[in-house]
Design a protein around this nucleic acid. Sequence first.
DNA 1: CGCGTCCTTGAACCGCGTCAAGCCAGGTGG
DNA 2: CCACCTGGCTTGACGCGGTTCAAGGACGCG
Lengths: 233, 233
Amino acid sequence: MKKNASCDGCPNKNCFIGHIQSPEWKLKLSNSKHLFIQKPGQHIFLEGNPVFGIYFILEGKVKVTISGKGNKEQIVRLAKDGDVLGHRGLGGDFYPINAIAMEETVLCFVENSLLYSAFIANSEFTFEMMLFYSGELRKAEQRMRYLAQMNVREKTADALLFIRDSFGINDETKELNVEINREEIAGIAGTSVGQIIHNLSDLEKQKIIDKTGKKIQISDEKKLREIVSAFYP
Amino acid sequence: MKKNASCDGCPNKNCFIGHIQSPEWKLKLSNSKHLFIQKPGQHIFLEGNPVFGIYFILEGKVKVTISGKGNKEQIVRLAKDGDVLGHRGLGGDFYPINAIAMEETVLCFVENSLLYSAFIANSEFTFEMMLFYSGELRKAEQRMRYLAQMNVREKTADALLFIRDSFGINDETKELNVEINREEIAGIAGTSVGQIIHNLSDLEKQKIIDKTGKKIQISDEKKLREIVSAFYP
DNA sequence: CGCGTCCTTGAACCGCGTCAAGCCAGGTGG
DNA sequence: CCACCTGGCTTGACGCGGTTCAAGGACGCG
């Protein structure tokens, strides 16, 4: 682990690192076999893999995808440090999705037996976990609607905001805090690479974004949100 | 309540009626204010309503929708007796979705304080609830992919199967066990009414369905599933 | 019988996916 | 230091598929 991931002051309400950093858990997890590192592009688990437990991201970024027709991958979630991974497997035998590291990622694996004993011992943890699921479900169903009803321009804007809200932007440069290519953006928006490029160009002409540099800059977040405002309360 | 809903032998693994029929709960819920009836078309709660608790469906059918651009409603879930309703609100302040009765529906309302006390008292209940969320999340993310990648013909077939799997069919007549109009089917498929009608006609010509009677009959379920088989493992 | 609601059909328009061709930047080797 | 290659990005054109709309049919109801 490059640095000690901390949860103090973490703005992410659903951050579980606090739990796994408690003395009790630290002892259990001190065995190094629980921690491992994935390089960018490496998969953490794939659709159909048996479920042995869940993962906590200590550091890094991960995309969660569902593989579709003709090698198209639909990105259903973006996760970063403090997030849980593989929780969709819980209660089933096989993962229904793929998890792939987007950059060097440090993971903490918690095997089923340990996890279940935590659920039994700590009902508050179970409760929090349930709330976490509730929030994820809400988000997933919202995105369902976007995919069904938005046109491509709106989907493109929404995908950018989705990335922005998942990984954040640099306050100064307004660059997205992640390296992401057109294909991945298309995978989030649920459209083709061609359309993404087309619409990114349009957005740039309107000075809403800037893609001169390597990373996309969101110059005018307000206008970007206006594009999709009809879909948000 | 027209008849006493029972959970015995219920094939639905996620049926919660068993819980609320335990002696402990029966006592708590014996107060009649917890039970109420909704007529078809009446809403149980709407987007933006404050969350006071959750609901269990004792009898009837309910559609869960998200209202979209231009009065289009996207149906994200179909629920029947034994299902929970309003659980998306848990952990948030307002419902993110609408719940509307599709036929006369008997509901049991469980207010937050009662629910939370159940979570504290019965960690197994919390655990089961968590697993339920996990399953719902999985389903929602699968449907996300379908909406993004299927063409209209596939969406139409998938919508029919979605209804069939949610509410079942009459074994003899092969009719869907629910009255549902074209607009609602379009809301499930995430397409327009025109396309639904067009594709239903096509499916009828191929003798896969029959819509002579009032309710749609699924004559050849196998062929219907073949249409979408590329999307299911 | 007239009215309303839901369903059906067909035609016109246009948004979107696809593809071919070219651009640019970074890496590699002579 | 330049020539070449490769992979990601960009642009524009084409054509299919889907949305939308208008007009009409089927059915139930007052």
